[in-house]
């Protein structure tokens, strides 16, 4: 089972790239995805939840089960900081 993870903004500094394909065996929680792609990023997000946006198929996890939201085969996860643009 594959999921696509897109990382934007300075979060890329933690991961080194924009797109990651993750192989998963069963549905997996956002919390565990974060740890898998970068423990440092996971820690930053845990400490600064107000500064991160995590979407599963375009919907904010804050409107689902937060970090316990489960991701399934074919889902797209977007992880980005609350960036500014001016």
């Amino acid at each position: 089972m594959m999921i696509e993870v897109v990382v934007l903004g300075f979060f890329q500094d933690y991961v080194g790239k924009k797109k990651i394909e993750l192989e998963i065996e069963k549905p997996i929680a956002i919390r565990d995805i974060l740890k898998r792609i970068s423990p440092e990023l996971a820690e930053y997000i845990e400490n600064h939840p107000e500064n991160s946006i995590i979407l599963v198929n375009g919907v904010s996890i804050y409107n689902m089960k937060g970090f316990d939201t489960k991701v399934r085969d074919g889902d797209k996860v977007s992880i980005m900081p609350v960036v500014g643009g001016g």
């Binding site: 107000e50 991160s52 946006i53 979407l55 919907v59 904010s60 804050y62 409107n63 980005m80 609350v82 960036v83 500014g84 643009g85 001016g86």
Partner: peptide, 17 residues
């Protein structure tokens, strides 16, 4: 946008709300 630049917060909070 210089006043209520809400869009980043809104993405986190949920665009649909």
């Amino acid at each position: 946008h210089k006043e209520a630049w809400i869009i980043a917060w809104e993405a986190q909070y949920g665009f649909e709300k």
